[in-house]
């Protein structure tokens, strides 16, 4: 437990030691603003909720999260610090989890800094703050899902650009998996069970209901299990790939 927090602290501090964290947060806030007010028609809708804000998050994360995740392990391998880190008395799972949690915390900070939008909606109307809180939580968990994929992809290569492209592609697949267009494309002979299973893996399937304020424990559980599985995969990939 001790070393998990030591690694978490170091990783989080390293985001803020360079302009990376600040640029990330600023870009995140600006794009969020554009999406919500310009594309989402926040004012035009005349409703006191944050649906336009949250519904763009999957597409925003699609590019922003892989940018954070791509260096997680690729850089450690490129600079050789992975050898330093893993020959210290550190458990691999503490290293994987510590790095993930630090990046996830950065996402959380960026997300929390969107609070003016929440103040705005409260100033203009009388929204259901429980719904908004649930949506924030769901959004953060979804970001964690993207990040966990990125952790694994980053572990698979020394080249962070490759890690970025792989992560974006894979995340895109998981985002659209549950979309109606893709599900209708299945030929009739495919059993319904398979189609349902496919849809159940899609991020949108779970996120849409959370964003609308239906905080179902099963949706949160999906993301939690999803994150766990990809982190285990990260550890396995690191074990396999660290030699070269």
């Amino acid at each position: 437990m001790g070393n998990l927090s030591v690694i978490f602290k170091r990783e989080l501090a390293s985001y803020f030691a360079t302009p990376l964290a600040y640029i990330f947060i600023v870009i995140f806030l600006i794009t969020n603003g554009i999406f919500t007010f310009e594309l989402g028609g926040f004012y035009l809708r005349g409703q006191a909720d944050l649906l336009p804000f949250f519904s763009f998050h999957p597409w925003l994360y699609l590019f922003m999260v892989p940018a954070i995740a791509m260096t997680l392990w690729a850089d450690e391998r490129k600079t050789g610090t992975i050898e330093l880190l893993l020959t210290l008395p550190v458990r691999l799972k503490d290293a994987v989890l510590g790095k993930f949690l630090a990046a996830w915390a950065l996402m959380g900070i960026a997300l929390a800094l969107t609070f003016p939008i929440w103040i705005t909606v409260n100033y203009l109307g009388d929204p259901d703050n429980g719904v908004i809180f649930a949506a924030y939580l769901g959004s953060w968990f979804m970001a964690g899902g993207f990040l966990a994929i990125g952790s694994c992809m980053s572990a698979a290569t020394k080249n962070s650009v490759i890690a970025f492209i792989l992560t974006v592609s894979l995340c895109f697949v998981f985002v659209i998996m549950g979309s109606p267009i893709l599900l209708e494309a299945f030929p009739a002979w495919v059993p319904q069970v398979v189609v349902d299973a496919f849809a159940a893996m899609g991020f949108l399937t779970h996120y849409d209901s959370i964003a609308k304020g239906v905080l179902d424990l099963r949706d949160m559980l999906f993301f939690a299990v999803f994150i766990g599985a990809w982190l285990v995969a990260s550890a396995i990939v690191i074990e396999i790939k660290k030699a070269n």
Partner: peptide, 16 residues
Amino acid sequence: KALMGYLPEGAPSYGD
């Protein structure tokens, strides 16, 4: 690992 100190080849460290 707790008993050992190790300087890997090229002395890698966190540059930032």
